[in-house]
């Protein structure tokens, strides 16, 4: 039992070391700076044409949140595994007295920390904007719920990116596939299922709609030449969070299983 406790402590310290090294690399490669800049500037875009209400303003701004999270996941986790093999830095990194699982855990957590940081920054800027434009009392009470939802979706998106990075050999392929899956394939599946009047509850990007819907907004999709409206489904909070958490756990678990067995 004592041996297991020591072993776990060692694993945590190795993962922590790996996380710090990854954060240094993200900083040095300017990825973090670029995303921070985006998270600071993009929330200012809705100022071009401001809605009447604070909720509308926040919802408008947060409609870009999914894009930010996917970009962040792709940038920070897209090459986390395959990049080491592709660039042959694995030949420096792996013949060392640390578990591969600890190395990759640190990489996933570093990508998550960076994504959390840019998400948090966006919410800070948005909150300040909303307060400044509409009054501090008008800031939507459910903003914190939206923030938590965004963080949970981040764990899922980074998990998907980590899995793709583990499965593929080339960084560029992994990054593109992450974008394709989260920005195109899944949303298309959601749209098709909606048109077929079947709730796409198990698609993680559908659950990500909670980021805006928790503010009390609903959405309608105008379709056809007569302006018919298709009522979009709205994910329930509990199930949506569970779906995102499941994606996170499953993708990270599968990604880790592939990554630790990968050979040069």
């Amino acid at each position: 039992m004592a041996t297991n406790a020591v072993s776990m402590r060692n694993d945590f310290s190795e993962a922590w070391l790996s996380l710090r090294f990854e954060l240094l690399k993200h900083l040095k490669r300017r990825r973090l700076i670029i995303l921070v800049a985006l998270a600071t500037i993009l929330p200012l875009l809705p100022l071009i044409r401001t809605p009447d209400t604070a909720v509308g303003f926040a919802a408008n701004s947060l409609s870009f949140m999914t894009v930010l999270i996917v970009v962040s996941a792709a940038m920070f986790a897209g090459d986390a595994v395959c990049g080491e093999f592709e660039k042959k830095t694995s030949l420096l990194l792996f013949p060392t007295p640390q578990k591969r699982s600890s190395i990759f855990a640190g990489k996933y957590l570093a990508a998550l920390v960076c994504t959390f940081l840019v998400v948090a920054l966006w919410y800070v800027v948005l909150t300040l904007e909303t307060g400044a434009l509409y009054g501090w009392g008008e800031i939507p009470a459910e903003m914190w719920k939206s923030f938590v939802t965004a963080l949970i979706f981040s764990t899922a998106a980074v998990g998907v990116a980590f899995l793709v990075s583990s499965a593929l050999k080339r960084s560029i392929s992994a990054t593109i596939l992450v974008f394709l899956v989260l920005m195109m394939i899944m949303p298309i599946v959601v749209m098709i299922m909606t048109l077929l009047e079947s709730e796409p509850w198990f698609i993680v990007t559908y659950s990500a709609n909670l980021i805006t819907t928790v503010l009390g907004t609903t959405s309608r999709l105008p379709m056809g030449p007569h302006g018919d409206v298709v009522q979009q489904f709205t994910p329930t909070f509990g199930r949506g969070m569970a779906v995102m958490a499941t994606y996170a756990v499953a993708c990270v678990g599968a990604g880790m299983a592939i990554a630790v067995r990968k050979e040069d």
Binding site: L24, K25, K28, R29, K87, K88, T89, S90, L91, L92, P95, T96, P97, Q98, K99
Partner: peptide, 21 residues
């Protein structure tokens, strides 16, 4: 592996280097 690799220093093929570090 951890115990074994503690006493080894290795240069394998032409390893990549983190060129931004």
């Amino acid at each position: 592996p951890k115990d074994a690799l503690r006493s080894i220093g290795a240069l394998i093929e032409v390893p990549g280097v983190y060129d931004y570090l």
